[in-house]
Design a protein around this nucleic acid. Structure first.
Length: 906
RNA sequence: GGGCAUUUAGCUCAGUUGGUUAGAGCGCUACACUCACAUUGUAGAGGUCAGAGGUUCAAGUCCUCUAAUGCCCACCA
């Protein structure tokens, strides 16, 4: 910011400041944090965005919150580390790269695994840092020297280590189960990766003939008739009287003519459908469980791409939905469809490509979760980890207490290979779980050893993020040197556990819960002490923002148009504690306007500051007695604001903190204080106080609006350089201390007195506007005061009142005297009289007075009733009772004054 | 089926230990541009705090029920 008025543009231009300061901050190493035993660590690990990600509003909100916390704690003098990085996002990235090579006419399968992985790395080099660049645009003060990627070599070591340790502990096993299978991605998915959505489908009633009497049927109801080809039983509830006689009899499965038995199982709901259910063990998790109980056969009728296989006979090669139609047609022809009813059902969908998942029988690796969940439940119940807002604790506990085993193998190529090896000779028996590829088979000595083809679920690496980013396990880094040449050996001990995790509700199960389990299992301590769950960003109609809905507001567009600070501030000020946010583009104007307000207030101050005056030792002016009431009020308001803001930040009430600052800076400081002192701007007290408040306000605003505050703060620094004040370091506002609350400067009495004066000014302005008195008109006001104190106050500030209320004359009297043809107002024990000969409509004035008197009387009646109530006087705290009494007295006085005025007018 | 959240001004929302006259931003009305800022200033209009019951001296705030809306979880074929 240049120094003279002419050089400072009247509008804040974010483009000129943002990139400049970001670069300087990075160059000065201000984002870097290192082990420092003299300081308390404050650590946040970023929820690593997908390497394929592009910044959306959810990221903008989430990362702005983290940046506010980091900048605030850095200013508080803590060693604040924000650990950044990206997630390799297995399926998502593989899909993106597959689409990308498809443009060259290439397919993954033809390329081969090794070549394909090379292409993924290449893609990562080229496009993988997009979101990191975008986070920088957002002003994120991450320690970029520590940036990690979940596929980094060192990180992979941690993943392998964890797999081996869990396996050795008996918590990892391999088995054939019904899992969620995405036929498009052709991989298994965990339960969390296959969210259920409602679909409109049909309930088909199929008739299965009895072997002994082919004209008799058992009717079964199903939503997926194509799976009937794999049926190996029909089940009924043992209590179901309707089927009692035929239990154990044999049915002939239509189309395939397989003989199947009628069995009983308590799982069957008698109320649903016909009470008889077809059992397809290889294609339904319930049927699978039933089949295990009854020793039924498992017949898989589909291929991994969800086309029918050789067990489907003539339906082979048909897609599952095509097969459904054809099978229904064929059954219809044979008269084996009783009816078809429309039916709402919910089915799992792939969270990546939204394909309907197929419950599919296959061999996968699982983690036993119950033993891991137990300590993680305890930790939260004992309050070692606190959720904010606390309601999420219930969600977490509910999931953890009903946790299912975690399917961690994925049939894709991009990810951490499972550290499991098989001896080709010994086949399945020769399973070797190892940190390194074994040279020979332990059993037969064969060197023909193959690694498991599958990779691990992405979250199997993400759940290690709070410690794997600090080079875990420490034994592996005993030398104290990482491949990158830093010395990380004490980092883990110093920065772990991290301080707080800020994330979105969608990943509480995927990520938060699992990190807690991993932290307790491998670090023997919780990974963070607080979890702040920020709300979901929605559009103005409450819909989640998504590409497919086309309702995206791109944060980068907003930054381009309004500036980063404006975007950050707007977003924060409208986001209530953990509530969802409803956004429209216009809502960012508030932040832009505020940035401009800060800019112009600073411009005004810079233009009017006398460097010689603020260079003198400031402390002398902080003797309260020396300052006039205006300055005492202003400083008191500032420190009250500081106190409030600090409290809100400590409680994660970011919107309250932002709005408190907004209200103070705009309304108290600009609208009132600067307007008042304009008249006497060169007064040394005014000079120092306005400088002080601006400088400290910039510090309070800095975590929210980092760029504009730095820009202005640097200009202030230049102006006062060489002085003995805070600018002697003149480094960056980023590392300036967060101001201390000076309780002795908070002066409620001064605040109260000024409030009265401001009320008087407002009342006078109101009176003249109501009567359409032009601003140019020469008017006078007579104020009659009840107390000596008020008289003194008003006499002292009479110049201020005259100026702000645009009065020619202001006389302060002791007693109210009626003035003919005047407008009147009463504030507490103060009469304001504005003589306006010829303009005043006495009738109208009397009506207005009556209205006010009636209102006052009603209030008096209510207060009297309250105070007559003995229960109230007995039970309410004394101060409340006193307050009510005082208010009653005041109301009485007001009523009397109104009466006097009315009498005078008549 | 279970759970959670929301319901306060025309709109979008604040209001964390219950305590004067319920707040903000936007929008609206009127007035004001030589004097930091029209991305501005000044003043104003606008609310029986979803409904019903209860606890309490006192309820937007605590409890119960109802209604509407949104979200999450669950193996109903």
């Amino acid at each position: 910011m240049p120094q003279t008025a002419n050089e400072i543009p009247s509008r804040y231009n974010p483009k000129e400041t943002e990139d400049k300061w970001y670069k300087i901050w990075v160059e000065k190493g201000l984002f870097h944090a290192a082990v420092n035993s003299a300081k308390k660590p404050f650590t946040i690990v970023i929820p690593p965005p997908n390497v394929t990600g592009i910044l959306h509003m959810g990221h903008a909100l989430n990362n702005t919150l983290q940046d506010i916390l980091i900048r605030y704690h850095r200013m508080k003098g803590e060693e604040a580390l924000w650990m950044p990085g990206t997630d390799h996002a297995g399926i998502a990235t593989q899909n993106v790269v597959e689409r990308s090579i498809a443009k060259e006419g290439l397919r993954r399968e033809t390329l081969g695994r090794e070549k394909f992985i090379e292409r993924v790395w290449l893609w990562k080099e080229q496009y993988g840092s997009t979101i990191i660049r975008q986070l920088k645009k957002l002003g994120a003060s991450c320690d970029w020297s520590r940036e990690r990627f979940t596929m980094d070599l060192e990180y992979s070591k941690a993943v392998t280590e964890v797999f081996v340790r869990l396996y050795e502990k008996g918590l990892i096993y391999r088995g054939s189960y019904i899992i969620n299978w995405c036929p498009r991605c052709q991989t298994a998915l965990s339960d969390e990766e296959a969210p259920h959505h409602e679909l409109s489908g049909n309930l088909y009633y199929l008739k299965y003939p009895l072997k002994d009497s082919p004209d008799q049927f058992v009717v079964v109801a199903t939503t997926r008739p194509e799976t009937m080809l794999g049926d190996t039983a029909v089940a009924v509830n043992p209590k179901d009287k309707r089927y009692k006689k035929i239990i154990g009899k044999t049915l002939v499965l239509p189309l395939v003519d397989r003989e199947i038995k009628i069995i009983t199982d308590t799982l069957v709901d008698m109320e649903f459908g016909t009470g008889a259910v077809k059992v397809t063990p290889a294609h339904d998790p319930n049927d699978y469980a039933m089949a295990k109980r009854h020793n039924l056969e498992f017949i898989n009728v589909m291929r991994p791409d969800a086309r029918m296989n050789e067990f489907a006979g003539e339906y082979k090669d048909m897609d599952r939905f095509e097969a459904r139609e054809v099978i229904v047609e064929d059954l219809k022809e044979k008269g084996l469809i009783e009816k078809i009813e429309p039916h709402k059902l919910s089915a799992g969908h792939c969270y990546r490509c939204h394909t309907i998942i197929e419950p599919y029988l296959s061999k996968q690796w699982f983690v036993k979760m119950k033993p891991l969940a137990k300590p993680a439940i305890e930790a939260v119940k004992k309050g070692k980890i606190k959720f904010h807002p606390p309601r999420w604790e219930k969600v977490y506990l509910n999931w953890m207490e009903n946790i299912q085993d975690w399917c961690i193998s994925r049939q894709i190529w991009w990810g951490h290979r499972i550290p499991v090896y098989y001896c080709k000779k010994c086949q399945e028996n020769g399973v070797i779980v190892s940190r390194f590829k074994p040279e020979t088979c332990h059993a037969c000595g064969s060197q023909d050893i193959l690694q498991d083809e599958d990779v691990l679920d992405t979250w199997f690496s993400s759940w290690l993020w709070p410690f794997a980013t600090f080079y875990w396990p420490p034994e592996a880094y005993k030398q104290g040197l990482s491949p990158k040449g830093t010395v990380p050996k004490d980092d883990l001990r110093y920065f772990y556990p991290t301080s707080i995790l800020v994330t979105a509700q969608e990943i509480i199960f995927f990520w938060v819960a699992r990190m807690i389990m991993a932290g307790l299992e491998f670090m023997d301590d919780v990974p963070f002490k607080d979890v702040y769950i920020n709300g979901t960003v929605r559009d103005i109609e409450g819909k989640k923002m998504s590409k497919s809905l086309g309702n995206i507001i791109d944060p980068l567009d907003i930054i381009e148009e309004y500036g980063t600070d404006a975007m950050r501030f707007s977003l924060i000020s409208i986001t209530a504690h953990g509530q969802d946010v409803f956004l429209s583009k216009e809502r960012f104007e508030q932040g832009r306007n505020f940035a401009n307000k800060i800019w112009n207030a600073s411009r005004f101050i810079l233009m009017n500051l006398e460097p010689t005056l603020i260079k003198t030792d400031l402390c002398v002016f902080f003797k309260k007695e020396d300052l006039d009431v205006v300055n005492r009020w202003a400083l008191s308001r500032f420190y009250s604001t500081l106190q409030q803001t600090t409290k809100y930040l400590e409680n994660f009430q970011f919107n309250e903190a932002a709005n408190t600052l907004y209200g103070f800076f705009w309304h108290d400081f600009c609208d009132w204080y600067l307007e008042i002192i304009k008249q006497d701007i060169k007064n040394p007290h005014n000079q120092v106080v306005m400088y002080k408040i601006l400088e400290k306000s910039l510090r309070l605003l800095h975590p929210f609006m980092p760029f504009i505050t730095e820009e202005i703060w640097q200009s202030l620094g230049k102006l006062s350089s060489g002085s003995a004040d805070e600018h002697k370091q003149a480094n960056s506002i980023m590392v300036e201390p967060w101001p201390h609350v000076q309780e002795q400067i908070i002066d409620k009495k001064a605040e109260g007195r000024m409030a009265t004066v401001l009320e008087i000014i407002t009342a006078i302005r109101n009176m003249r506007q109501e009567l359409d008195v032009p601003l140019q008109a020469r008017i006078s006001v007579v104020i009659a005061v009840g107390s000596k104190e008020n008289r003194q106050l008003l006499e002292t500030l009479s110049g201020v009142i005259k100026n702000l209320a645009r009065l020619d004359n202001l006389s302060v009297e002791e007693k109210y005297k009626h003035i003919k043809s005047s407008v009147n107002s009463v504030i507490k024990d103060i009469h304001i009289t504005m003589p306006l000969e010829g303009i005043v409509d006495v009738e109208k004035e009397i009506i207005k007075l009556d209205e006010r008197m009636n209102k006052t009387r009603a209030e008096i009646a209510a207060k009297e009733k309250m105070l007559r109530n003995k229960e109230f006087v007995k039970k309410a705290p004394e101060e409340i009772v006193e307050k009510e009494k005082a208010r009653l007295t005041e109301l009485g006085e007001i009523l009397n004054r109104l009466k006097v005025i009315k009498d005078g007018l008549q």
